[in-house]
Amino acid sequence: MKSDNEKIVNKFVIQTKRRKFTFVPNRRKSIILAEETNLEAVDELLREVKNRGAAYSLIDAGEKKEIADLFARQKIGTYLYLAGTPQRIKEWTAMAVKAGFTEEEMQIVCYGAEEQRLFCAHCHHIQTIGKEDAVQCAHCGMQLEVSSHYSRLHDAYYGYIQLPCSDGGESR
């Protein structure tokens, strides 16, 4: 059996579309965690937070351990604003979820290289790809059609086997 309890129940899809934060009022406290300083989304949020006189802490991306401890110390009512590259956001959300945060208790602004992972229908190998519609599996050489079917467990999109006379489809 695979031991992926945490991953399954709590890992969630990181929306990369969001460019700005929307301030959520009436929270006991806001924690703003940014990978870099001078991000416009963060500056805007800070202005709003200060205007409203809400309690907040602005944290620079520090050591992993420190952030995990910070998350674990939080009481109910703390809201998280996370801004960073996909890799960093994945680390942070994993730590937040471990501490007990849910999707409803955080907002994410994710920026930087948009690479995605592709799952090979034939051999299950996962490779990183760009924005192609079709690629060859780096492991088995099968021609794959990139789909929008996404697995959180594998953090990958499904690559359907493409026959020379292309059709595809999943019959469920």
Binding site: K2, K7, A121, H124, S151, L153, Y158, S171, R172
Partner: peptide, 12 residues
């Protein structure tokens, strides 16, 4: 299976 992957859909 009717052309669906248990490995891929696990956990969904």
């Amino acid at each position: 299976p009717g052309n669906w992957s248990l490995v891929f859909k696990l956990g969904m």
